[in-house]
């Protein structure tokens, strides 16, 4: 397979996954806002932090929760009124604009989908025409001005559409592409992006707690955790396995589970098998830096316990995993695309 084509497939899938993940995250937090308007302080700031670049957001729209400290009660009242009127507060509108539509933000849904499509356009003879068509329709939809207007008045429907489009594209590819190189490069991109997104979503908890850690062990704490599970698309599957919400179990589920398709370990393991399907190198050995880095991370996750992660600091652990994923991305570039 052409190096350029392999790279385009990899990035196409990464950006589709990223768009879907950002969409899910914003959607969940919009729901949270409607459930708990007065307990919502700091939430948007955290969402912007994990999904994008909060400095860029602040430059463009002012701080996400600028009035949080001074006017919590007034805001709660305003929000109640707004909610009754069926409108979003300015903050939420800004966040939706920034994370969903702002083309200056390279990680907004619209930017991700446009980048994915640009990559797909250069490989459209490689992916199936059905997959191309799904992505093209997604792009036409997300970039149309009508969609933007409708999203601000009915965000739930918009984000449902984003999730569905992400699933549709992945599903069409699963159903239509031979399990050959093109498929494995694209799957590897999707899984590495997903692993990264899951660590970011889990890190949301860290940013939420920053203001004073006062909510630990309360009902609010539970609601935060549930929001995190939902943002990771994990709530229903978590419930089936563990039932009650508890921090250590959530970490175990989102980081270490071997069966849940969005857990970091699942993603890393399967990305590794795609990598080895491409190179033909047997497991437990390596011939290039990409295999070495990804194999090492996979082994580490195989022998890690949730309590250990929490004990030594979840945020720091997630930070390290992210750094290793980045490094793996670099070595994939060096091994396959730089040629």
């Amino acid at each position: 397979m052409l190096s350029r084509v392999a790279e385009s497939l990899y990035w196409m899938s990464r950006y589709i996954e990223r768009a879907a993940s950002v969409g899910r995250c914003v959607d969940v937090n919009l729901h949270l806002l409607l459930d708990l308007p007065d307990l919502f302080e700091g939430q948007w700031d955290a969402v912007v932090k994990i999904t994008g670049d909060s400095a860029a957001f602040n430059r463009r729209y002012g701080a996400a929760d600028a009035d949080a400290q001074s006017a919590v009660q007034f805001r709660a009242f305003d929000k109640l009124v707004d909610t009754m009127l069926g409108e979003l507060d300015a903050n939420a509108q800004n966040v939706i604009q920034f994370l969903a539509f702002d083309r200056e933000n390279p990680n907004s849904i619209a930017s991700c989908v446009a980048t994915a499509r640009e990559n797909a356009r250069s490989v459209r003879e490689i992916i199936s025409s059905e997959a191309w068509e799904e992505l093209n329709v997604f792009y036409l939809n997300v970039t149309s001005p009508d969609t933007r207007q409708r999203a601000l008045s009915n965000p739930a429907e918009f984000f449902r559409g984003v999730r569905r489009a992400g699933h549709a594209i992945a599903g069409v590819m699963i159903e239509t592409m031979s399990r050959e190189e093109a498929w494995h490069f694209s799957r590897m991109g999707r899984l590495l992006e997903r692993a990264d997104q899951t660590t970011r979503i889990l890190d949301l908890k860290y940013f939420l707690l920053l203001p004073g850690a006062r909510a630990v062990g309360t009902a609010v704490d539970d609601i935060h955790w549930m929001a995190i599970l939902r943002s990771a698309g994990a709530f229903e599957m978590y419930r089936k396995v563990y039932g009650r919400v508890a921090a250590a179990r959530i970490v175990r589920f989102l980081v270490l589970d071997t069966q849940f398709p969005r857990s970091v370990r699942y993603c890393v393991n399967n990305a590794e098998s795609s990598l080895r399907a491409i190179t033909g190198t047997p497991h437990k050995s390596f011939r290039n830096p990409a295999e070495r880095g990804l194999g090492r991370l996979a082994s580490e996750l195989d022998y890690t316990e949730a309590q250990e992660v929490i004990g030594s600091g979840l945020h720091q652990f997630l930070d390290e995993v992210q750094a290793k994923l980045n490094k793996t991305g670099d070595s994939i570039f060096q091994t396959f695309f730089a040629g």
């Binding site: 052409l2 350029r4 084509v5 190189e181 490069f185 491409i278 695309f337 040629g339």
Partner: peptide, 20 residues
């Protein structure tokens, strides 16, 4: 394959694609 000029190189007298 659909190739661009940068995907091709001439080596040993023949034309080759740069692949993974």
């Amino acid at each position: 394959e659909l190739v661009e000029g940068r995907d091709l190189t001439v080596a040993g007298g023949g034309v080759h694609m740069r692949t993974s």
